[in-house]
């Protein structure tokens, strides 16, 4: 029934040429926006898990070398005694220098005099619930000046940024939907105007509005689906290209943009949605417009 003979001369109206392209662009934009939002949600989840399972303990560098050694050993002992702690290692001076290099330049002789704090990198069991505040309290009680940072403030800002981006993406998707529906309404009204003579004949021989609407709806379904497939065909290589570029960066800052198979399935279903939305919109438009006629 999908490619059924139509009682209206749809081939002559030219809408079949431009409507699929308009829908294709909309589906392309929707696919990109959705892929972005989905990749962000994956990344946000990963960051959340990755960072929340780490702690950085800082011991001020104001102590005498001997006292400092003792303080580090005490801190490591306290940390390693925690059941949730998987590992706790002091970050070497050379690693700290390397971390500071982008800000302070190559480590020279004078930089040795800088009072660099001692940092301990702590990895936690991601599934364990850790009371970071209590742990920090115990640490500072035994090692004066020691602080534990679970990156909470930074993480909160990051997560709220991601939520904002996701909200904007949703708004973009909503706008795309609105424009698509508007396009189909406009195209359907144009079709009704172009074919009004044939529609009048159908009416005069006893066709109900729904009979006419069905013809428009089937056509919109076919054109919407076709446009959706075209849009997806445009979006797929684009996404693949972005993924490839992101892979090449290898930078720690850029998370790799990967989508799960469920996400790919959601993106692949966009043409079906495009077809269904076009079909429902066309049907509604025809029923509404015809109900105002004799």
């Amino acid at each position: 029934m999908f490619m059924r003979r139509s009682d209206l001369p749809f081939d002559e109206d030219g809408l079949a040429r431009f409507l699929p392209w308009l829908i294709a662009f909309m589906v392309f934009l929707a696919t990109m926006a959705m892929a972005g939002a989905l990749a962000l949600s994956v990344t946000a989840g990963r960051w959340d898990k990755g960072i929340s399972a780490t702690l950085t303990v800082q011991i001020p560098a104001t102590l005498a070398p001997k006292a400092q050694e003792k303080a580090i050993a005490r801190a490591l002992k306290i940390l390693r005694a925690e059941p949730a702690v998987v590992s706790a290692e002091q970050i070497s001076e050379s690693r700290i220098m390397a971390l500071l290099e982008p800000w302070l330049g190559t480590a020279g002789e004078d930089m040795r005099d800088l009072p660099l704090p001692i940092l301990i990198d702590v990895n936690l069991d991601p599934d364990a619930v850790v009371d970071v505040a209590a742990l920090a309290g115990r640490l500072s009680a035994q090692v004066p000046g020691a602080t534990a940072d679970d990156h909470g403030a930074w993480l909160n800002r990051l997560v709220s940024l991601i939520h904002w981006v996701q909200a904007v993406t949703l708004a973009v998707l909503g706008l795309i939907l609105l424009v698509s529906v508007g396009t189909v309404v406009f195209a359907t009204r144009t079709g009704l105007a172009i074919h009004h003579e044939a529609i009048e004949v159908l009416h005069l021989i006893g066709a109900h509005d729904s009979y006419v609407a069905k013809q428009f709806a089937f056509r919109a379904l076919a054109l919407g689906f076709k446009g959706g497939v075209m849009g997806l065909a445009l979006a797929a290589p684009t996404l693949w290209g972005i993924g490839l570029l992101a892979d090449r960066m290898e930078a720690g800052l850029l998370p790799d943009f990967t989508l799960t198979s469920a996400h790919w399935l959601a993106l692949a279903s966009l043409p079906v949605f495009a077809g269904l939305i076009a079909m429902l919109t066309a049907r509604r438009t025809v029923m509404k417009t015809l109900s105002e006629m004799l």
Partner: peptide, 20 residues
């Protein structure tokens, strides 16, 4: 006449029956 130009003579005549 008001025949539908894109339909064959057969389909034009069949319209009232199909509509019904």
């Amino acid at each position: 006449f008001r025949l539908l130009r894109h339909l064959s003579a057969f389909d034009n005549v069949a319209l009232p029956l199909r509509v019904a």
